[in-house]
């Protein structure tokens, strides 16, 4: 585990921490063009100690986003390509018998990194999927009866192609819940796409980009996020939103209390990224689609084509108290 900064020299002032967030945002913005909202959401997700699911078609920069996040935040990074023959041991590691010592020695798997990109997670079998999801939930893995702690911070970015492709195992709802946010990247706008086509190769750019911070700072930031105040007025708003998802005719299954907690946690981190003095209704709205989109089950007869659209409808129907 690499430590790029030590606790001694860690800037603790609020302004210094804010600066780190701002610089990370800018750095990411130079690589992933025209996706400021997704970048902010990804950072907020990390700061809220959640895991991120990026769902979109191939070639839209899912992997690039995960890699540049790891790079910019100075985290150790491993990529696991999920395939249909991936085994749990390929993820968590395996004990190998050593002839010379006559003992078993644990070979840690790729999961022992601070930022893991689980690429195309829906291609693997549920067995392999659950090995990762368990690690995400417990922050530790059990191998041969030994419990091993995962590094901190521990952040999983999983990507998934939309489920209507052949030979995939879409994650069930209960496991989608393990991800704090699900983000869709979408096509870039015309201007950004032009620059992407004409400009420098993104991969070589990624190699040159410098870390703006390190794991210790990230932990400090995660602590600072918890201090962002949530006022009664905002809780009322969140409650109204949650209640609406449960009572709306367009939604079969609304947000659970855990979903509501996730919404507040994500909004907190987003408010921090946006440098708000508390969680504003705007922050809740900004994270709502990402947090609630994969947690809601639309009614069969729904008129909405995508979860994002459904979420926007919810926001438009609930008055801010």
């Amino acid at each position: 585990m690499q430590r790029s900064t030590t606790l001694e020299s860690l800037p603790t002032g609020r302004s210094a921490q804010r600066e780190v967030v701002e610089r990370a945002r800018q750095s990411l913005g130079t690589i992933i063009l025209g996706k400021d909202e997704q970048i902010s959401l990804a950072i907020a997700c990390l700061l809220a100690r959640g895991h991120l699911l990026i769902e979109d078609l191939p070639g839209l920069g899912k992997t690039m986003l995960a890699q540049s996040l790891a790079r910019v935040l100075g985290l150790s990074f491993r990529r696991i390509q999920f395939t249909s023959d991936l085994l749990p041991a390929d993820i968590v590691g395996v004990s190998v018998f050593r002839q010379e010592s006559g003992e078993f020695e644990f070979q840690p798997g790729p999961v022992f990194s601070q930022l893991i990109l689980a690429d195309e997670v829906n291609r693997a079998t549920p067995k392999a999927q659950s090995a990762l999801l368990e690690a995400m939930e417990e922050q530790q893995v059990s191998v041969d009866g030994n419990t091993r702690k995962l590094p901190t911070p521990f952040f999983v970015v999983a990507t998934q192609n939309p489920g209507d492709q052949i030979g995939t195992f879409p994650l069930p709802e209960s496991q989608l819940d393990r991800f704090l946010m699900r983000v869709e990247i979408g096509y870039p706008d015309a201007e950004s796409e032009r620059e992407l086509i004409a400009g420098e190769d993104r991969r070589s750019m990624l190699r040159e980009i410098e870390a703006v911070t390190g794991p210790d700072m990230l932990i400090a930031l995660q602590e600072a996020v918890r201090e962002v105040p949530v006022k009664d007025a905002l809780i009322s708003y969140v409650q109204a939103l949650v209640l609406h998802t449960r009572e709306s005719a367009d939604i079969d299954i609304g947000l659970s209390p855990r979903g509501a907690q996730a919404l507040v946690a994500a909004a907190r981190a987003y408010a921090y990224v946006e440098n708000h003095s508390g969680v504003y209704p705007d922050d809740v709205q900004a994270v709502f689609a990402a947090v609630a989109g994969h947690r809601l089950k639309p009614a069969g007869s729904t008129r909405f084509r995508s979860p994002a659209e459904l979420c926007q409808h919810v926001l438009d129907s609930v008055a801010i108290p």
Binding site: P229, K231, H276, G278
Partner: peptide, 8 residues
Amino acid sequence: LDARYGSG
């Protein structure tokens, strides 16, 4: 926003 939702 600062008065109602923030720490202002």
